[in-house]
Write a protein that binds this DNA or RNA. Structure first.
Lengths: 225, 225
DNA sequence: GAGCTAATTAACTATCTAGTGAGTTATGTC
DNA sequence: GACATAACTCACTAGATAGTTAATTAGCTC
């Protein structure tokens, strides 16, 4: 989130009585749409309802985003941008490989829990077979840093003889992601089937520790390292 | 106001052999609806389109299932019933705990890959917050056998001093499920972000072995067992 | 073979929904 | 202050969509 409009001091350039404010209007639409799409899905969300929840009119959604799918695509792109920004805050270079892996796993765990709407959008886009995400510009590059961080940790651990060498950063990323995404995304059906709340406060500490244990146990599996 | 007026000349030969078969009709609707809902979601699927793909008329969907959600609920229930049946085929009692865990993991892996429509329905129902699944009758009981099988394996392994004791069958089930579900459900966004096909034939053997390794490494983690 | 009812068919509708046509106003530029 | 245009408003529509009304028929029971 790059909010440069955190104007603490008074800016003389800023006309306060602006009735027009394209950036704000666009942003307002995008935020409302993100909530609605995350809540109801692409086909479930209603343009009229999104419009009603904004400070502007339906016509403006079309003015800025073309059509419903264009708006949805903008929402997706924005959602991934925000997530990337938050993830880039991670700094594990100063940690030992073992500690770094655990920190990364727990950060992912916390992160997904803190952004259920993002998880929902991802699930929605997957039921949509990713057709709108592939149209987003430069997404692979935004994800590269996360993978490179993990690659470095792995290399350090492998060179120190701590980690197995027959695995990759993508493997580990997928392992961590699957666990953390599933816990949030599938909690409803899991609860219906097993009467167990994956996101319940009482289960959180155990589940949070467990993913670190799992990844480290795999990386340090006897006979493999 | 008889409709026969509009048809004009009608020959008595036109007696279309209307064979009645309620079970077949119901089943036909259910199967078509399952495919459509898995494909487009609850809000994305269209009653008219489902009806068009059946051998009967739209009115019959309402006759048998009440409304769109009723049909969707019937589809969900059926999907879980079918899955349960397939999973009950599993027999690992004769295997050593270690081998049994690996067999279970790989069976789940294969199973999810073979039923992508089921995975889609689960994802769809989760974006729907599980409101329709909780209304299904006796679902927890259908899942109990799978958990009990896992519990037995764990107990045997723990009593033999092979497995750690600070974990439960639900933990392990969640770990295996998350990995296997994620691989199928999230392959589209994963591919868009990392240009890596989780369901590609070239990655399959490695990913299939990996989940068994992961679970066993965790269960046998040094210092814990 | 009359009568009953479950199963089935065809035509219809109220409402919703994404999208538009066409005009209006604020704002920066000269 | 005139002008150009980006930003915005309001009313409208064509088509889609879930659901219904009502008539018809197959097949069973007696």
């Amino acid at each position: 989130m790059t909010r440069s409009e955190t104007t603490g001091a008074t800016s003389e350039k800023e006309t306060v009585k602006r009735t027009r404010n394209p950036e704000k209007t666009r942003e307002n639409i995008l935020r409302v749409a993100m909530t609605e799409f995350a809540d109801k899905g692409l086909t479930g969300a209603r343009i009229d309802e999104i419009a009603a929840k904004t400070a502007t009119t339906k016509r403006m959604l079309y003015y800025y985003f073309g059509d419903k799918e264009g708006l949805y695509r903008a929402v997706l792109q924005r959602a991934y941008e925000e997530i990337r920004y938050e993830e880039s805050q991670l700094d594990v270079d100063h940690l030992e490989p073992t500690e770094a892996i655990r920190a990364l796993a727990e950060l992912t765990f916390d992160h997904h829990e803190a952004h259920p709407d993002f998880i929902r959008l991802v699930a929605i886009e997957n039921t949509n077979r990713g057709v709108n995400l592939v149209q987003a510009e430069g997404l692979p590059e935004t994800q590269a840093p996360a993978i490179r961080t993990l690659e470095q940790i792995l290399r350090r651990g492998q060179e120190a003889g701590l980690f197995r060498t027959d695995t990759t950063a993508l493997d580990i990323h997928m392992l961590i992601s699957s666990y953390c995404v599933f816990r949030v995304a599938n909690r409803y059906t899991f609860r219906a089937l097993f009467d167990w709340d994956l996101t319940g406060a009482e289960n959180r500490p155990h589940l949070r520790t467990m993913i670190g244990d799992v990844v480290l146990a795999y990386l340090q599996q006897p006979g493999k390292v």
